[in-house]
Nucleic acid binder design. Structure first.
Lengths: 217, 217
DNA sequence: TCGGCCGCTTACAGCTGCTTTACCCGCGGA
DNA sequence: TCCGCGGGTAAAGCAGCTGTAAGCGGCCGA
């Protein structure tokens, strides 16, 4: 879990950071709103622990920016006063949680954890065709239900062919999608890779050659 | 909801108690720390409203005892000052909430209610997969039911892998999620940490490497 | 203050897989 | 018949990835 702590009071900021680190979280610390915006732009945080009263850029504005950009990042606002109106304001701005100072540390940990749990990314769908099942997320290929061990390049080529959905894919297109741009255009790699792929996938053949055009599943 | 109010200033104690009773809570009142410990040992309170400066036994000690005994009881500390040093101390002791005097009564009610809710809704976000059980709250890992001792970094890496739900996680992603921004991008830590993790988790292997891509559970 | 654990780096060995090279076959047209 | 071309296959070299050992500084608890 990656966390950014934004708090101008350095003593408190460090205390919070070390505490969270003890909970096995990866914590960055900044002391003003401007630095916070920079870090958020660069890194993909799960949770931002955000003081409201910040130098340079106010905490509310930092929070708004996070919400505007549609990031998966969650925000916990810290505020000096325990006023209820503050809480309502904070949630209106788009914070996901709100914690009045002074707070119990265990409380903060629990809330950071709860927010981090929400940020789960959906897995990409499994591609199926002609007895082949290819799972891009798990990097796993099944032939008639049996796992097949593929090298990275082989996997990449098969994935391109599967995504083409039965259409013919030329060797040039395969080079373009499965290799980077620095490869020799007169290379033989595609033929070799397709060959090993065919061998590993076994009979009956799933990759057919379309003479003069390319390959197809 | 069962509440214990511990406050040596009898006038204030009774005022708080009647106020909470009006909110349909069952409230007991004691005026010193020793009496508080007795009551806590006997009754199963949802929330304890605890003054810090108490006769006989200090509020901090009462709070520690509650935490040590692993009770479901939540503690709200009432502190005379909203001082920074108080806050930092509070982090260590383990109270669930802090309220600086003087406070608005509505605020106290809101917090007691919030804590009571949380007590009834225990969060069980235990991650399970492939014979591994990981409890983020308790920072505890079980392999086939047997506890495994992990260093914080090892725990963080395992947590990221578990949350990925069987998807492949690249070394870069692990760096991103389990380390902070001060790490060298060309580092070798991931490999080393994964190695020690594998060693500690024992056979059969749960973390498999996907060549060229990363790791997967 | 000391010892041990933790996190990290460095160094290295083994090996896998990518790529090139070379060669094969079959086919169609001159 | 020969030649060129498109395509398949085997082998080998090499680069980069991966696992592992060893060591070191720092922090924390005894």
């Amino acid at each position: 879990m990656r966390v950014l702590v934004v708090e101008d009071e350095q003593l408190l900021a460090e205390a919070v950071a070390t505490g969270l680190r003890r909970e096995a979280m990866a914590v960055d610390v900044v002391y003003d709103g401007e630095a916070a915006l920079q870090r958020i732009a660069v890194n993909d945080y799960d949770v931002v622990v955000l003081d409201r009263d910040l130098p340079l850029v106010h905490g509310d504005d930092v929070c708004r920016r996070v919400v505007e950009q549609g990031l998966a990042t969650r925000v916990i606002m810290l505020t000096a006063s325990g006023d209820i109106s503050d809480r309502v304001e904070g949630l209106e701005i788009g914070a996901d949680d709100y914690l009045p100072k002074p707070f119990a540390f265990s409380e903060l940990v629990a809330r950071v954890r709860a927010l981090g749990r929400r940020a789960t990314v959906p897995l990409p769908p499994v591609l199926e065709r002609a007895g082949i099942s290819l799972d891009p997320g798990r990097r796993e290929v099944l032939r008639d239900g049996k796992p097949v061990q593929l090298a990275p390049k082989e996997f990449a080529v098969l994935e391109v062919l599967m995504r083409a959905g039965g259409a013919v894919v030329s060797a040039e297109q395969l080079l373009e999608k499965a290799w980077d741009e620095h490869t020799d255009p007169f290379t033989n790699v595609v033929r070799v890779t397709v060959m090993t792929l065919r061998r590993k996938l076994g009979d009956p053949a799933v990759i057919v050659t379309v003479p003069g055009s390319g390959y197809r599943i």
